[in-house]
């Protein structure tokens, strides 16, 4: 199947406002079939809102979303037999035991695989006889995972699934998830960038409700570079630096910034133009965490500059 012609998720100008606050503004993205798509962004960026729009928990104010080829607003009932959804703040049926919850969920899914359920119970070491309300947060997440994976969903949607979990539980969940990856599409939001980097094939970055980029992980990793320019003598930062250079800083003879649109020949030409006296220029790959921080900080600085240009100018001078 061609992923571009029949994506698992596709949004077009998807927007959602709560009163006068725009939680999500004109988000257009595509998640191809088989992808592990990671949605990243700071707190309040709109990740959960986007996921709830996709799951028809919220209705869009404008724009549209298609999930498994269906308008998200029509996503209900049987359509959910192909979707697994786990959220960090989901309210589980706390009065049920783990076993009762699995029994109950089983009745809704014709494709429920009892052997997979047993395997997940073993793998996550789930106590079947204990009530969910008596379980730790990690155990609850594992129970939620088991109840969402046992029917082999075509699409797994995870909203901050690893948030606040200890490393052991995280590893167990990721392991369980990756075992399902070949047969499914995974769409997840997370703050855990190290994990995302290791497991995602695609990444989207939300900032204040806007999608700054959405692309394949290797392309992204290639596009961002930590650039270090060593000069002969200390010099102030040149004016009118390219907007793709994020967080430019200078200290003594060294200028550092994050290049957000790196391609080797073009970057070399640009740098030669701005720093003709450069003694050495180094381009280092960045981990996802650094990319995330660079984008977030530069986005915040941009917002502050727009809000108060005078103070921002003073800050730059300092």
């Amino acid at each position: 199947m061609n992923p571009t012609t029949n994506p698992t998720i596709r949004t077009e100008n998807l927007s959602r406002s709560f009163g006068r606050t725009a939680a999500l503004a004109q988000v257009s993205l595509t998640v191809p079939e088989g992808a592990i798509y990671a949605l990243v962004g700071a707190n309040g960026a709109g990740k959960t809102t986007l996921i709830k729009l996709l799951m028809n928990i919220f209705r869009p104010t404008a724009g549209s979303a298609q999930v498994l080829g269906i308008d998200s607003r029509r996503l209900a009932g049987k359509r959910f037999t192909h979707i697994g959804y786990v959220s960090e703040n989901q309210e589980l049926p706390e009065t049920m035991t783990v076993g009762a919850m699995l029994d109950y969920c089983r009745g809704f899914y014709p494709e429920w695989d009892r052997s997979l359920e047993a395997q997940l119970v073993r793998q996550f070491d789930l106590p079947l006889g204990r009530k969910l309300k008596h379980l730790s947060r990690g155990m609850k997440m594992k129970a939620a995972f088991a109840s969402s994976l046992a029917y082999r969903p075509t699409l797994i949607v995870l909203d901050e699934p690893f948030s606040g979990l200890d490393p052991l539980v995280r590893d167990e969940l990721i392991e369980g998830l990756l075992e399902r990856a070949p047969e499914t599409t995974i769409f997840l939001s997370s703050h855990d960038l190290a994990e995302i980097e290791s497991l995602s094939s695609h990444v989207g970055f939300l900032e204040q409700g806007r999608l700054l980029f959405s692309e394949e992980m290797p392309v992204l990793m290639h596009r961002f570079r930590d650039v270090t320019v060593t000069l002969d003598a200390p010099a102030p930062l040149p004016a009118n630096l390219p907007t793709a250079w994020l967080q430019p800083q200078t200290a003594d003879c060294v200028v550092r910034f994050v290049h957000s649109n790196y391609s080797e020949p073009a970057a070399a030409r640009e740098l030669a133009e701005f720093f003709p006296a450069a003694r050495n220029i180094a381009f280092d790959p960045l981990p996802l965490r650094q990319i995330f921080l660079a984008i977030s900080k530069s986005g915040r600085a941009r917002s502050e500059a727009q809000a108060d240009p005078h103070a921002a100018a003073k800050g730059t001078a300092a």
Binding site: I57, A76, G77, K78, F80, Q90, Y109
Partner: peptide, 8 residues
């Protein structure tokens, strides 16, 4: 929990 389950 039930919002994203196959309830009709």
């Amino acid at each position: 929990f039930w919002l994203t389950r196959p309830y009709e």
